[in-house]
């Protein structure tokens, strides 16, 4: 097992590394060199920040093509978290229109409240409801709370890529899937027990 956490200057890597160790992961590598993706059995793409800065950094560090190869050609299980999930889209609209990694077809746009009680950013704990059965949610019942902190959301083109939805702003997509490619808008590494369960499920893939 070789879990590679991508370091492109956009995230707090410590808490992900620690959460993975708590989940029993061995060989966790924090990588800032795209070459290190070659030996990965699992890849995690974390991220905090704006879409534009995130993409700029992935390109600058040379990760864009390396991630696409690993995910689409070598079919390595990859998990994008928060901004990391959003960057998997075709396009994002935070900081202007920007091309994403194009791993799962869709766009990233700002959340739109449907009533006055809904504030943006969406910060705190909210429920997830699965739209399809998937091993990554093994042992995690519908209605479990996960931790979110975001203003933008992923709008997939195909319904089949929707893994879960969350009741806010008219049910936004809180996780996505396409074969070996996964993304969660919530932070499993900050979601305590259910979050660790999800990470354990991921490293078992």
């Amino acid at each position: 097992m070789q879990i590679v956490v991508i370091d492109y200057g956009m995230s707090n890597l410590g808490s992900i590394g620690n959460a993975l160790s708590e989940c029993g992961a061995e060989n966790v590598i924090i990588a800032n060199d795209p070459k290190e993706l070659k030996s990965a059995t699992h890849i995690i793409l974390p991220g905090v920040g704006s879409f534009k800065d995130g993409m700029d950094n992935l390109v600058k560090f040379g990760f864009k093509d390396a991630i696409r190869d690993a995910a689409l050609v070598d079919k390595v299980p990859i998990l994008g978290i928060c901004l990391g999930m959003q960057l998997m889209a075709d396009k994002g609209y935070e900081g202007g229109e920007v091309d994403g990694l194009g791993l799962i077809s869709g766009v990233v746009d700002k959340l739109k409240p449907v009533n006055k009680q809904e504030k943006i950013p969406h910060v705190g704990w909210n429920e997830i409801y699965c739209k399809q059965k998937n091993p990554i949610f093994e042992g995690i019942p519908d209605g479990t709370d996960f931790y979110f902190v975001h203003s933008y959301h992923f709008i997939p083109k195909k319904k089949s890529n929707i893994l879960s939805e969350t009741p806010y702003c008219g049910n936004f997509v809180s996780s996505i899937v396409s074969d070996n490619i996964y993304g969660t808008q919530f932070h499993p590494e900050k979601s305590q027990r259910p979050g660790f369960q999800l990470l354990r499920n991921f490293i078992k893939l």
């Binding site: 905090v48 920040g49 901004l83 935070e94 950013p121 902190v149 975001h150």
Partner: peptide, 8 residues
């Protein structure tokens, strides 16, 4: 807010 996002 511009660099890191309003949410943080």
């Amino acid at each position: 807010a511009q660099i890191f996002g309003s949410q943080c």
